[in-house]
Design a protein around this nucleic acid. Structure first.
Lengths: 193, 193
DNA sequence: TTAGGCCGTCCTATCAGAAGGTAGGGCCAT
DNA sequence: ATGGCCCTACCTTCTGATAGGACGGCCTAA
């Protein structure tokens, strides 16, 4: 469904995502990307006419990947707490091996007010996706009796998401990948029924 | 001690800080700043020869302001829990009235890997300051018997800081200043003895 | 008192390089 | 022969930065 991209276009999107994770929207240029893939700037413009097209494609790809991962977890065989643990574990390993040292949308969210409107909308879309999924997981956990928390699943989802992104920022600011898990562990434990 | 700046230089630092909070390091230029204060770009270079000088000055000013605020709270008349509440309350009001919609160092932390090394060092310095202060507040709160938490004050400080920055990011991502306080309230309550 | 020099501030003018982007052509597989 | 892909060759605007000069305030020496 999201394989409308040629090999090159896919490579470019992935490369853009990687650069954005490290330096944000204004932290990379077509020239950077061109150098990385030994291609000309104009060729990138062939696939993505403007920079916002490229960045939105990168965000959309991340959203699609998340949706795919979520769909896989939602076949009913994985219980709510495990879904949460896989989510945080996924990020822990990405941060540790530096393959994805930060959430793409997280970096962009930090500079939201200065982003082109349609990029900003895509970023907000990602957080909306994420909040929706997590709310559902928490509701399921409570219904299954494996989770316990005060307030609504929606409120608790907001809090947990904030904790995840705060932990990411802390891991980056203190230059210590292990801090991500150290910060989140008690948050997860607190949800245990 | 930090009033080595002329009026103009101070204005410029404040303006730079404001722009960075909204768009990050690469999200503003000397031209933006020049236009805002109806001054020429070259005049800014007179005060701050390079962009890193300017940005470091902005971070240093923020750190100095924090230190001053902390020193005021540490005269012994304000108990630990109140210090924490004033800290979060300060940010809540800044975010709500958009006067300081995000922590300067927080935005920069998101793009840390791509920052000039000396800017990155200043950013890490801010987080180190903050962690040191909060650890001390938490230790004091526990000693006074007004706070209770598992683990060391240092660990708990890391978690609380992560929660604060996560809440900031959530407020920005969901475009809802009230979310900051809503997310932090339970974190504060949890510390109450 | 005032002439001289100096310093801090801000200016005009200019620069090299990077930014995002466009026009148009060649090559190759269908 | 058409369409997709990538190229060379440009263009414009922005970016951070420099050189050098104008102006004013301030201190000092005559």
């Amino acid at each position: 469904m999201n394989r409308q991209y040629s090999d090159t276009a896919g490579k470019l999107v992935a490369g853009a995502a990687d650069l954005i994770m490290r330096g944000g929207y204004n932290g990379f240029s077509y020239a950077d990307l061109a150098e990385r893939f030994a291609i000309r700037k104009a060729s990138i413009h062939h696939h993505f006419p403007s920079k916002t097209d490229l960045v939105i494609a990168a965000i959309d790809q991340a959203r699609a990947a998340t949706r795919a991962q979520v769909a896989q977890l939602q076949d009913g065989t994985v219980d709510a707490m495990d879904q949460l643990l896989r989510y945080t574990g996924f990020w822990q390993s990405c941060i540790t091996d530096q393959s994805m040292p930060f959430c793409l949308a997280g970096v962009l969210a930090a500079e939201l007010p200065s982003l082109p409107p349609d990029v900003a909308a895509a970023v907000r879309g990602h957080f909306s996706d994420l909040a929706g999924w997590m709310k559902q997981v928490l509701a399921q956990g409570r219904a299954q009796g494996t989770m316990r928390f005060a307030g609504t699943p929606g409120e608790e989802a907001e809090r947990f998401i904030a904790a995840v992104y705060g932990a990411m920022l802390a891991a980056r600011a203190f230059d210590d990948p292990a801090r991500f898990g150290a910060i989140l562990a008690p948050c997860v434990d607190r949800l245990r029924a």
